[in-house]
């Protein structure tokens, strides 16, 4: 009985992590679209910083920057 209860509780909590509805629908992104929700305060400064990181550390990335680390791009 105790096992069943534990399994049930696990399922209930686990259902919240279900992949069916975890994404915010595109039409529900009004508050996420606000400029205040952006982590980047100054886009130009951020681009420069990312370029510097990409140039100095070729393994750093994931921000859409180009170049292989030579600093020439």
């Amino acid at each position: 009985m105790k096992t069943v209860l534990i399994v049930l509780i696990a399922i209930i909590f686990g259902a919240g992590c279900s992949t069916f509805r975890k994404r915010v629908a595109p039409f529900q992104r009004e508050f996420l679209a606000k400029s205040g929700m952006n982590f980047i305060e100054n886009p130009e400064e951020e681009t420069g910083m990312q370029h510097m990181f990409n140039a100095r550390e070729g393994s750093v990335g994931g921000f859409g920057g180009a170049g292989g680390g030579c600093g020439c791009n």
Partner: peptide, 15 residues
């Protein structure tokens, strides 16, 4: 346990 799991899965899909 599998049957119990099946009961909960439809609850998560209402879109």
């Amino acid at each position: 346990y599998f049957l119990i799991l099946c009961l909960f899965v439809p609850m998560t899909s209402w879109a």
